[in-house]
Design a protein around this nucleic acid. Structure first.
Ligand SMILES: [Zn+2]
Length: 574
DNA sequence: GCCGTTTTCGGCCCGACTGTTTTCAGTCG
């Protein structure tokens, strides 16, 4: 069992215990343990063996026993027991914003409801609003919540999808007759959420032979009948995976089509027809003449096009673009010199400053912009002014000790409801740079929210606007915000806007990046790391930047530390 | 359940909003 699966079990245990009315601190402990496991640097079995699991904050004897059990037998006795005691539908209801344990218990006891479907019916029929403590607004929000949850259940977050895809790819590549297995589809296009996995198998044997050996792949089941070149599977993690087999000579045609998107393929097909070609499901043809496409470049070349980077294949003009010359070199992970937006154990992070800095250095960064939560974020252990002075002293000490990495004094300051930051200017002046973001009071109109953000951008100490739309992918909608006005202000005031690289956020959305860049907005990629594993977030941020067509010139933290600091200082009063 | 320690128990994250009440419980970040 991998980190994700173990973390999920621990989360589930927490939810079931919560619904059973268990000690809330025990519930919280399981949630914390889940986060800790998800943030491990190694897989659970290895972390158990080398003692790093036991050394992790938030993991004690109880968690270790469960992880051992999960690694050994793949299931948890405690969770199985809880499943018998509490209907699974009630746990699903916890995912609805506005429903907590106490309301769910009322719903269960008074209406006998055990599933989302029943809850939906009750809300429609007015039975929910009639419950004590409930009303019309609550019922309406519950219906909205159910709709959101249903849609969310069709997708997976990109990091989970990538993990599943990679495991499946490795397993498929070991099958007899398979030369190579390649991940295609939304994962390859670096989409922010993923509906299904698509993999291409290169094989010189008939597909039927390959499919017969699928039974060798552990935990995978076939869900849709195979034809002569395709089959649909269900992965151990519950994702749908489409597998396409091709001989090497047609890999280009098949890989392009397996990668998509629909919109890209439609435009590509139109272009092909114009040039006298046709692209069917398995190969490229010029009239009645077969055209070999051993790789994607061969396919695009035959059509008179430059090879389109997979991230850009979204039908947003890239085919026309590919006819007119080479694409710019998109951002690459190694272009990043600065590791920005990370938390330490001073607020809600799991590791200390020095450990994080050393890990950043190992990952190849030249500077680390530490940004713990600010004092308004009490729930996340936000720093008081006293805490700040302690932290700054420690940063100075760490910088004196370490070579090869510089720790910068930053903060993720809350933007309060009125648009002010939650430290006074004298305190803000003590930071090397300031990220400001919204963590509360989301229920505002677009005008109010825009005014709030614009007011925050008046602060001469603000360097970067953090996770600008506040979305949590598949769990919370973005708050309304007039991005065009925010971009205009950012360009004029020389404030960078963040791509938050946490796979739960990926905010800014890639669809608006080009607009921001073309208006002269500097973009910054922030990891939002809360532990060492969070260093890996940056790869997802890079994927989103590439998807938005950005290059290293567009990104603030591709610049060396001194230029980064110059950027931050340029706005400040002298 | 985890943590820390005056080491085996006692405390753990709290302030503010929201929708529902008619003075506040429940939820959220
Ligand atoms: Zn944040």
């Amino acid at each position: 069992m991998d980190r994700t699966a173990v973390a999920r079990v621990l989360d589930q245990i927490a939810s079931y215990l919560e619904l059973k009315g268990e000690n809330p601190f025990r519930v919280r402990a399981f949630h914390a343990a889940s986060k800790a496991v998800a943030g491990l640097a190694a897989e659970p079995a290895d972390a158990l063996a080398d003692g790093s699991l036991a050394a992790t904050k938030g993991v004690g004897q109880g968690t270790i026993a469960i992880v051992e059990e999960l690694v050994r037998v793949g299931r948890s006795e405690l969770l199985e027991q809880l499943r018998e005691d509490v209907p699974a539908g009630l746990v699903e209801m916890l995912g609805i914003s506005g429903l907590g344990v106490s309301r769910i218990r009322t719903i269960h006891e008074k209406l006998g409801i055990e599933s989302l479907t029943e809850l939906e019916t009750a809300a429609r029929e007015g039975k929910l609003a009639a419950l004590p403590g409930f009303g019309a607004k609550t019922a309406e929000n519950v219906l909205k919540g159910i709709a959101f949850l249903r849609r969310a259940q069709e997708f997976r977050l990109s990091h989970h999808a990538l993990e599943e895809a990679e495991l499946l790819r490795a397993a498929l590549e070991r099958l007899p007759g398979v030369d190579r297995a390649l991940v295609a589809g939304e994962v390859r296009r670096r989409c922010e959420v993923v509906r299904e996995l698509v993999l291409v198998l290169v094989a010189d044997v008939p597909a039927a032979d390959v499919f017969r050996s699928l039974a060798l792949v552990p935990g995978v089941e076939e869900v849709a009948g195979a034809d002569e070149r395709r089959v649909t599977l269900r992965t151990p993690g519950g994702m749908s995976a489409r597998i396409v087999v091709t001989p090497p000579v047609n890999l280009g045609a098949v890989f392009v089509q397996a990668t998509g998107s629909e919109a890209h393929l439609a435009q590509l097909s139109d272009h092909a027809v114009e040039k006298g070609f046709s692209l069917n499901a398995v190969a490229l043809w010029h009239g009645s003449e077969f055209v070999p496409t051993p790789d994607e470049a061969a396919l695009y070349r035959a059509l008179g096009l430059r090879e389109v980077p997979p991230e850009l294949r979204e039908g947003t003009g890239e085919v026309t673009r590919a006819a007119s010359g080479p694409f710019p070199r998109l951002l690459e992970p190694a272009d990043l010199t600065g590791f920005l937006h990370c938390h330490s154990s001073y607020s809600d992070g799991a590791v200390g400053i020095e450990e994080m800095a050393v890990a950043c250095r190992e990952a190849g960064y030249a500077y680390m912009g530490l940004t713990d939560h600010s004092k308004a974020a009490a729930y996340a252990g936000g720093l008081s002014v006293d805490d700040l002075h302690r932290q700054w002293a420690e940063i100075d000490a760490v910088n004196a000790r370490l070579s090869g990495i510089v720790v910068l004094k930053g903060i993720e300051s809350d933007i309060l409801a009125d648009g002010s930051l939650d430290y006074d200017d004298a305190t803000l002046a003590g930071f090397d740079f300031v990220i400001a973001s919204i963590h509360s009071r989301f229920a505002m109109t677009e005008d109010e929210m825009t005014a709030r953000v614009l007011r925050a951008m008046e602060s001469p100490y603000l360097t970067i606007l953090g996770h600008p739309t506040g979305r949590l992918l598949l769990s919370r909608q973005a708050y309304p915000l007039d991005l065009d006005r925010v971009f205009a202000k950012a360009a004029q005031a020389k404030i960078a806007i963040e791509i938050n690289a946490d796979p739960h956020r990926l905010d800014l959305d890639w669809r608006v990046l080009r607009r921001a860049r073309d208006r002269g907005v500097m973009i910054s990629i922030g990891s939002d790391a809360h532990n060492r594993a969070g260093i890996g977030n940056m790869a997802f941020g890079v994927g989103i930047a590439r998807k938005g067509g950005l290059t290293r010139e567009d990104i603030l933290n591709c610049r060396p530390a001194n230029e980064f600091l110059t950027f931050a200082r340029a706005r400040r009063p002298r």
